[in-house]
Amino acid sequence: MSRPERMQGGAAVQSALPRKKGFLDELKRNKILFVMLIPTFVYFLLNSYMPMVGIYFAFTRYNFRDGLFGSPFVGLENFKFLYKSGKLFSLTANTIGYNVAFILIANILQVAMAIILSRLSSKLFKRITQSIIFLPYFVSYVILNVIVYNIFNYEVGFLNGLLTRFGMEPYNAYGEPGIWRYLMVIFYVWKNLGYGMVVYLATITGISNDLYEAAEIDGANVIQQIRYITIPLLFPTFVILLMFALGRIMRGQFDLFYQVIGNNGVLYEVTDILDTFVFRTLKQDFDVGMSTSAGLFQSIVGFFIITTVNALIKRKDEAYALF
């Protein structure tokens, strides 16, 4: 019911303005604004639109001598290696599955932590907790791998040291693909919890105290305040972060998988994502054509996902949609 009303409202505002025709008038009217737009425009032109010419690489057998337009055109030949190994489906599923898990679990925990922290009254405790949770964000995945390896190493790892001390059988984590599904999510959340939490915390700080005071006067308890004030007001931020994350869903978290799983083929079945697969396949003899075809495939699937999600959100509530 609210949607048509809003649309009508929008139309009404537009018709109330003096009607101008054409882009030139618009340009004239908002000169300064357009000048301010130039740096952004140039930035995207140089970094995002011009490199798109390189998509053509995906359809050529690249050689250094002839370059981009001189190399022979081979049609869809370069895409062959992606499905030739019969892994395209499982790779795409892994990539999307992991990233959906990362995005949902991390965001929910970030919101939860942000709300809990915002409710704490001791400033010192709040600060310290916030820093401790934020700290892993600065740990590189290379270091994370060192930590993980020292925990799970069969012979000298921390975990097995503990297990054998309590008289239990040592556990071969690197030979058990199943648990890595969960471990990867845990590593991701461990590293990224703090960052998102701070974003949500900032939004919560921005919520006017009047709302809570009014709710308190009306007799709302803490849970009710969170349920009816904090969470609804956090929702726009949540959606924006979600949309940004979804845009990168096909390329998500290469570093994490590449560093932690490395060369361990036994784990590939459950931990291989498109990026690691492509990188591994092509690092032995870099082929510009095949790499570009893989990148193009990721972009197309990613584009499809984000437009779909955006359309769904738009249908629900236009104000939350990105475009």
Partner: peptide, 26 residues
């Protein structure tokens, strides 16, 4: 291997996934 580079890339990838574990007796 330019004539069969797609197959080669696929083959090499399977090797990376399966062969080391066999050679390592794991």
């Amino acid at each position: 291997y330019t004539a069969y580079q797609a197959e080669r890339a696929a083959v090499m990838n399977v090797q990376t996934q399966y062969l080391p574990a066999i050679q390592a007796g794991l």
